[in-house]
Design a protein around this nucleic acid. Structure first.
Lengths: 227, 227
DNA sequence: GTCGTTGTCGTCACTTTGACGATAAGGCCC
DNA sequence: GGGCCTTATCGTCAAAGTGACGACAACGAC
């Protein structure tokens, strides 16, 4: 077999919810092409390295996060000839959902990495290098859809969270307001979504709230709705 | 940039519903590795060819189908080192949903291509070459899930179809029995799912049934359920 | 203690669901 | 034509789920 010269990259859409908005981790490119523009973190897959392994490695390099406990899933692969001016590069894109980190991003490239509101990035078609605008659009769309029928929202939360905090995730990702009372009913009654811990917290102010952790459910029955 | 020697393949999971069961198009491999074993159709992406373009080309080569009208979507990409004994090969997998073809498969490789029931293939871990068992599992899982919230089932039907035929798709893909009366109510009342044509057919026997075509909806509200 | 804030439980009208009866309208066989 | 089989389609009804919203609980701030 002989192959054309071609590289495979693992790119990451790392999302979090901070200050009530959905944000993505971007890095400022220090080298050509697209020098000075923002881009999704990522890098080439090494020989003998699995795709997901490469994604986890990049994730750790960029965020310093122990990637074991982070939700990471493959979203799509982009391979249009010409998408990278350096040559043929296939980009396998992964979506990572991380909790709001108390510490700032602490990766090796931390100096040039930054959380930016997704809405803000997507309003400007040319903010991102390469075809990253489209990649981000697709990944965010996937995340929004998955919140409905999967317990994924909890991946944005710390290990212990309140129902309000969970609701805040939905509101930020979907960009809607949800009724606290109905949301509380649905979240706590949906089988295997959240597990009460017995303890409470007052960190959100007001009456102390029950703390929960993620339940074992892989899909939500019934699904949560955006309306 | 220098690259390790590496190939990118577009592989296809082509599904149809025939005789009440979900079937997949497999080809018998004529050359090593895995000579004589069944495998998913596919082939290497050519220089200057987009991934989806490659998938459509393979689809046409294998089935002779004008791929314009065929539902084709990317499912996942597999790149584990060692998944292909010939060297590093990244497989970008596409899912194609085709109607039950009146003519037998008429591709260039028709002699070695065959429809096989998915259930039958998946019961035997070693029936397929490479990691195609896993790829097929993932693709079928995707198809099953998407029937719930997307109008995709209609992609298995000819242009004009009856509600019963549509129900037959769901029953075959999900492997369940659905109540004809409730299904009829949901399918016809879900906004934009199906459009009545006014004409009827008796091809299914019994009372003449209304003919429908696919509606414009991209997602189903409310979704159809498997129970 | 009062006030403001957030959490949690309840109520109620409305819709949706699933189970199933009933009838419609063809073909087939005699 | 008449019975009978098959599938299509409409209706009914109880149970469950949904969205809107009232009410009260339990904290901190002052």
């Amino acid at each position: 077999m002989d192959f054309e010269p071609l590289g495979v990259a693992a790119d990451l859409v790392i999302l979090t919810v901070r200050e009530g908005s959905l944000q993505v981790l971007l890095i400022r490119r220090g080298i050509a092409p697209y020098r000075g523009r923002w881009a999704l973190p990522g890098g080439f897959v090494r020989p003998k390295e699995d795709l997901e392994e490469a994604a986890r490695r990049e994730l750790q390099e960029e965020t310093g996060l122990l990637s074991d406990r982070i939700h990471l899933e493959q979203v799509a692969t982009y391979g249009e000839p010409g998408r990278d001016p350096r040559g043929r590069v296939i980009s396998v894109t992964y979506l990572a959902l991380v909790p709001d980190l108390p510490s700032p991003v602490a990766g090796t490239d931390a100096a040039s990495a930054e959380w930016v509101a997704v809405d803000e990035v997507l309003t400007d078609q040319d903010r991102l290098a390469f075809d990253h605008h489209r990649i981000l659009t697709d990944a965010v769309e996937r995340a929004r859809a998955k919140l409905e029928y999967s317990p994924l929202a909890a991946a944005f939360c710390p290990d212990e969270f309140t129902i309000s905090e969970l609701r805040g995730i939905y509101e930020a990702v979907w960009g809607v307001q949800l009724d606290p009372r109905n949301f509380h009913r649905k979240a706590t009654k949906t089988d295997g979504f959240v597990i009460p811990l017995g303890a409470t917290t007052t960190r959100d102010g007001g009456r102390p709230a029950q703390l929960f952790r993620r339940g074992p459910a892989a899909t939500l029955h019934p699904p949560l709705t955006r309306g």
